[in-house]
Design a protein around this nucleic acid. Structure first.
Lengths: 113, 113
DNA sequence: AAAACACTTGGCTATTATGCCAAGTAACCA
DNA sequence: TGGTTACTTGGCATAATAGCCAAGTGTTTT
């Protein structure tokens, strides 16, 4: 493991970390459909406006979203649609985990039958 | 946004968060090739054995890896190969960010030329 | 049985993240 | 110009992470 390789893993981790929050995940999910202003996103997640703004700053800093000022509003949009791959994979992991848990339960019950 | 939907985003976030660390990312990357024991992974990341063990516990808890005891060793393996999608997407974001930064620099220089 | 090896867990401290309030900036309205 | 809307930033309290050491468990070797 060279220092250079480690730096690459750190860069990747920063991007992934920026998505590791339910509110940010929700916002990204909506932004995948269309650009939205901060007040729209605020209604969506239901937190304080400052909280939403900071979440968006995290995503912007990671390069996940871009911001564009239109009049008094700021619209955010998804820069890389591929982030939806995160969702599908997370979903896969969740499903597999539940599936395996069911399996082991079933196995317990069937044991001795 | 219903409570049920929010719970789903929390579940996804837990999975993504478990990957949001360079050491864990590195380990997952290696485990994508083959199952490895903790001591091998320790050599790889270079941290204390307890630190590596705790990182693996995080991944296991999220359902990313599975553990199997073989004699005195514990081998970890990747449960969902799709997590490699995280890497490729993170890579895409990184590249796009760098590309756009180059673009804007180029634009600055070309301005007035 | 004792020693060595491979882990895991508890405990601790340092760092980082989260989320609210309050204050500041910028655009728009009257 | 004064007020309102839309957002960002600073500050702060609380909570979660990270990583080391030390101690404990289970396995293999001698």
């Amino acid at each position: 493991m060279t220092a250079k390789q480690w730096t690459l893993y750190e860069a990747r981790a920063r991007i992934i970390k920026s998505l590791a929050h339910p509110a940010r995940l929700l916002m990204v999910d909506e932004l995948a459909k269309q650009p939205l202003c901060v007040c729209d996103l605020r209604k969506l997640v239901g937190s304080d406006l400052s909280t939403v703004s900071k979440h968006l700053a995290v995503l912007k800093n990671a390069g996940i979203v871009a911001d564009e000022k239109r009049g008094s509003q700021v619209f955010y949009s998804l820069r890389c649609p591929c982030v939806t791959a995160f969702f599908t994979c997370a979903e896969t992991v969740l499903k597999k985990t539940l599936h395996d848990q069911l399996q082991s339960l079933g196995g317990k019950n069937r044991r001795g039958a």
